[in-house]
């Protein structure tokens, strides 16, 4: 399934790796737990490393070796759960995270505009139609009170 990244619909070239899966070649995402436990091993990995964050995760756990991570996925358990918005803001503004920040899980496409405002620049959605609608919602507002 394709994703949106930096306002383009592109192929997703990342593989989801569960906690007990062995590591394949290529770009992989692992859970925060696995990243914290196996940082040394994971940094040897030839592909790029992405980390999946749950809504209750403490973002500050990512401070160490953050530059080794090129993708962070924020998992929304439900669209009503807005913790990911603050996690994104803290990752960008406090931890100065520069890599890809992707929203995954059960958020809704009508949240995409706000997500872009807090620093999320990539979106996994359920259908191509949703990706297209999401792209159009990014133009919903031309001004923002919060800079």
């Amino acid at each position: 399934m394709q994703i949106i990244k930096d306002q383009q619909i592109i192929a997703n070239n990342w593989q989801y790796i569960a906690d007990n899966d062995s590591l394949p070649t290529g770009n992989i995402t692992v859970s925060l737990t696995r990243w914290l436990q196996n940082q040394v091993q994971l940094q040897q990995h030839t592909g790029q490393i992405g980390v999946r964050i749950e809504a209750d995760a403490d973002i500050n756990l990512l401070t160490k070796n953050l530059t080794k991570i090129t993708l962070i996925e924020l998992n929304f358990p439900a669209f009503t759960d807005g913790r990911g918005f603050s996690q994104a803001r803290l990752l960008r503004d406090n931890l100065q995270y520069q890599g890809e920040l992707r929203a995954i899980g059960n958020y809704m496409l009508d949240q995409v505009f706000y997500l872009t405002k807090v620093g999320v620049n990539a979106f996994a959605l359920k259908t191509v139609k949703e990706l297209e609608t999401a792209l159009s919602t990014m133009q919903d507002f031309s001004y923002s009170y919060q800079n």
Binding site: T80, F85, S86, V118, Y145, Q146
Partner: peptide, 13 residues
């Protein structure tokens, strides 16, 4: 009012 309006981070409290 302006700060709260469409606050992107605080709309799903």
């Amino acid at each position: 009012r302006q700060w709260t309006t469409f606050h992107p981070e605080f709309s799903y409290l």
